[in-house]
């Protein structure tokens, strides 16, 4: 599998460490009423068949955290953005 790192270009998957689903967003509040949201953030993950956004660390390269879009069924990789840009885009939407 090849990952298009925004910094390093197309690199083999062996250089990356995957963390998992990038969809959950860390809650911004520490209010006790937000416990359910925290629980979901820490523990609940979808397991889709098809496209997924996943965190991947270019640990053997530029050490950037990326969000890689991959098809879990075919392992086709559609693209990758930095986790920073991904988070900021998510914040902008929220």
């Amino acid at each position: 599998m090849l990952i298009p790192c925004p910094h390093c270009g197309t690199r083999p998957v062996e250089e990356f460490t995957f963390l998992g689903d990038a969809a959950p967003t860390r809650p911004t509040t520490s209010d006790p009423s937000s416990m359910e949201a925290w629980y979901e953030y820490v523990y609940l993950r979808n397991n889709p068949r098809g496209p997924i956004d996943e965190y991947a660390h270019h640990s053997g390269g530029c050490r950037a955290w990326l969000v890689v879009q991959r098809n879990t069924e075919t392992h086709e990789v559609f693209g990758a953005v930095t986790a920073r840009d991904f988070s900021k885009a998510k914040d902008a939407k929220a």
Partner: peptide
């Protein structure tokens, strides 16, 4: 180190 990079880049950019 990896966790710090994650926290910095993904959680608190």
């Amino acid at each position: 180190m990896a966790q710090m990079e994650f926290a910095h880049q993904a959680l608190f950019p």
